[in-house]
Design a protein around this nucleic acid. Sequence first.
DNA 1: GGGTCTCACTTACACCGTAAGTCCGCAACC
DNA 2: GGTTGCGGACTTACGGTGTAAGTGAGACCC
Lengths: 229, 229
Amino acid sequence: MAEQTTGDTLPAAGEAAARPPLTYGRIIHTAIALIEREGAQALSMRRVGAELGVAAMSLYNHVAGKEAILDGVADAILAGLETEADPGADWRDRIRALAHAFRRAAQEHPRCMSVVLSRTMDWTRSLPVIETMLTIGEQAGFERRTAVRLMRAFMAYVLGTLMREEGTARALRQVNLDRDRIGDLVDPARFPHVVRASRELMHPDFDGEFAFGLELLIGAMERLPRDAC
Amino acid sequence: MAEQTTGDTLPAAGEAAARPPLTYGRIIHTAIALIEREGAQALSMRRVGAELGVAAMSLYNHVAGKEAILDGVADAILAGLETEADPGADWRDRIRALAHAFRRAAQEHPRCMSVVLSRTMDWTRSLPVIETMLTIGEQAGFERRTAVRLMRAFMAYVLGTLMREEGTARALRQVNLDRDRIGDLVDPARFPHVVRASRELMHPDFDGEFAFGLELLIGAMERLPRDAC
DNA sequence: GGGTCTCACTTACACCGTAAGTCCGCAACC
DNA sequence: GGTTGCGGACTTACGGTGTAAGTGAGACCC
């Protein structure tokens, strides 16, 4: 009565390699694929195990628990960031490259990105990004304290945009009625500007908006007075 | 054998008011307090019910389910925002007031705020904020399309900052060793700038950093060319 | 051969969200 | 007063979750 879980309890000695061995990397990779396919709430130890043809508890030989898997997912996504494309380029272009690297990662793993964003998001995981941004700040001629603040503002804008884009996309997906008829849903007396701007609000241009805010920020940095150390 | 859940199954007729009746508002209020006290992962239907001296299933008479409770929490927090302090003030001051209203809410309900941020965060809930920001954009002389983009950049910065602050605070809390000895944890060869800026990184000045980025953004808006409609 | 280590396995437990059905006290009506 | 209807809290039950604990088979080294 045990054949419902595994056809044969162990592979025959002759074909031991029929199932590749469990690995930390394979677990994380499977988790990423599962999240991307079915969403973060579908991730469970049993699901990941089933995906790998293994019982849930077997995962604990390689991973401390579910939280550790989510940490691993966040690590893997952030490790895929190309933080240093061209160190010799102009500092403005380096900032643009860094911002777009984030955005590209979010577009390649949209559902994993919300996992990344909702986790600690500051510390050893993000060290490469911090280092790069501080380097750029120095290259642009800013004192250390200012460079740290610019780094934090930059991170806030980029992460906030990714989060906002995801929320906006989800919200627009669930109001799939005729998008220009926003006036039926929103009280024009209370929210006149919202109704008037409904076209722009309901048909967001994510690329353009992201670039707009980024250039706003870069322009502000350019104009910021340099302080000699 | 039923006395373990409730001392007496029903209050005596004489003291019917011993337990105030269950209400949507009381449920949400209890959920907020619970999240603030023990964190969002501690929220469960059974916990909320126990807090109210009621079985978990009784909550379903007033609330559609757990998700609805979390939606209610987000609604309540956002409803507490003072989106319109002084409509006659200078547009820069209105932006500052709006940003600080967000930040104040986050400081009053730090753990609920991450619930708010991780939920849809765009749509009917945030209409008052959007409306206010569009009004300010118009007052500052921007065309509608630009006002929408400014609103989106502003939201991204504010929300990103709140999220980043929470993440940073949590990360710093769990590295409670001597904070100036960052060099022991971080490889100075790979991350020289991080090590050099360790003091600023490990002792963040959240207020100052928030204001810095905000003024950066406002300054950029000031300089942005106005476009006549 | 015997010992030890690795690693997948099973069992078990406490907890979760919620579908379904029960039952009692209050209020309204004849 | 008696009857009825009903709102709302109750219990039970189901399938899911994360994971602590223990089991046993193969692989390796002495």
